[in-house]
């Protein structure tokens, strides 16, 4: 029996050691990273700082070492990176190899980053995405300002298609809107691009009935972009004075949502009889989701009731005269 007295705590200790050992190794480099990227080890020379919340700065002259916090915008999440569309890349595929020197020189830090169009433009492989048209839309957009680029909304280190082929449109909407609110709901980011005063998105949308329901069910860009039939997500952000404010643009038979949010969804036939049926997979839009059969049936029943009343009235008049 005595052995059990030591065996059970021993097992716990061993299990604890295993857990600790696993944690101690850090497992920052998960096995699947190697499955999607051949340069994981090389990338670590960047991520040992840019994948952490702090980094160490060494002063070789005086032999001092200083630990500093990494600016949050320069921290890269390994999991997000190795599951994003650019997961197979080496850091220096897009960034200068001069970044390998540390501290980075000012010249290299001022390096101009690639835009989407630089790699994806005019390439048949990406023809379906119409990057060229997106570029045109962006240049006509109110976002076309000094210092603004694709990366301000789309993080190339974590980018995944959101709307295209999504099964969960509510989640996609939330993610899409969070991109806008990252600046328009956070003055710290907003002020980097403009000298305008702080805006209050909730107050400026007070005119919108059921504001919460709207923000949950549609993307900001439904009203703040010009509809474009050939690209999935419109990129021509309009000045606020040109944003859609007419309810019937969405709340009507020819709902704008069918040309924007639900444009590429092919579930139309799933909800027989409903106008703009794909919308009711997720929500109900007054005016846009009329059911043709029920519309006709209700009109027929009303007409029938009315005819019976007219017939009954005429008979009463005739009989009263007699």
């Amino acid at each position: 029996m005595r052995i059990y007295r030591y065996l059970i705590p021993g097992l716990f200790l061993f299990a604890g050691f295993l857990l600790f050992a696993q944690d101690a190794e850090g497992d920052k480099l998960k096995p699947h990273y190697h499955e999607v990227n051949a340069y994981v080890e090389e990338n670590e020379s960047c991520l040992k700082c840019h994948g952490e919340v702090k980094y160490t700065l060494e002063d070789t002259l005086y032999g001092r070492t200083v630990t500093q916090a990494m600016w949050s915008n320069l921290i890269l999440d390994r999991d997000a990176y190795y599951s994003g569309v650019h997961r197979s890349f080496m850091c220096t595929d897009c960034h200068s190899s001069e970044f390998e020197e540390f501290p980075h020189s000012l010249d290299v830090r001022m390096e101009e980053n690639f835009g989407c169009i630089d790699c994806h433009g005019y390439d048949e492989t990406f023809a379906d995405y119409h990057f060229e048209e997106i570029e045109v839309e962006f240049t006509e957009s109110i976002h076309n300002m000094e210092g603004f680029s694709c990366w301000k909304c789309h993080d190339p280190h974590a980018y995944k298609p959101n709307m295209r082929g999504t099964e969960n449109i509510k989640e996609a909407i939330q993610l899409n809107n969070s991109v806008c609110l990252d600046c328009h709901g956070n003055f710290d980011n907003f002020m980097l691009f403009t000298d305008k005063e702080e805006i209050n998105v909730v107050e400026s949308h007070n005119w919108l009935p059921n504001q919460v329901a709207h923000i949950r069910s549609v993307r900001c860009i439904e009203c703040h972009t010009e509809v474009n039939d050939s690209i999935l997500i419109a990129h021509k952000i309009l000045p606020k004075t040109e944003a859609v404010k007419r309810c019937t643009e969405c709340h009507s038979r020819d709902s704008r949502l069918m040309h924007s949010l639900y444009k590429f969804q092919s579930k139309e036939n799933r909800r027989g009889g409903f106008m703009n049926g794909v919308i009711i997979n997720d929500t109900y839009v007054i005016g846009a989701n009329q059911n043709i059969f029920l519309n006709r049936l209700s009109i027929a029943i009303f007409a029938l009731a009315f005819l019976v009343i007219v017939f009954h009235t005429i008979l009463r008049i005739i009989k009263l005269r007699n």
Binding site: T248, H251, R253, D254, I286, G287
Partner: peptide, 23 residues
């Protein structure tokens, strides 16, 4: 008015006014 509205806003009563009156 709300149910049968067209995208041009044609209906018995304007959409935004209908919403307020209905509520």
């Amino acid at each position: 008015s709300l149910h049968f509205i067209t995208s041009e806003g044609n209906s018995l009563i304007r959409f935004d006014i209908s919403v307020v009156i209905h509520n």
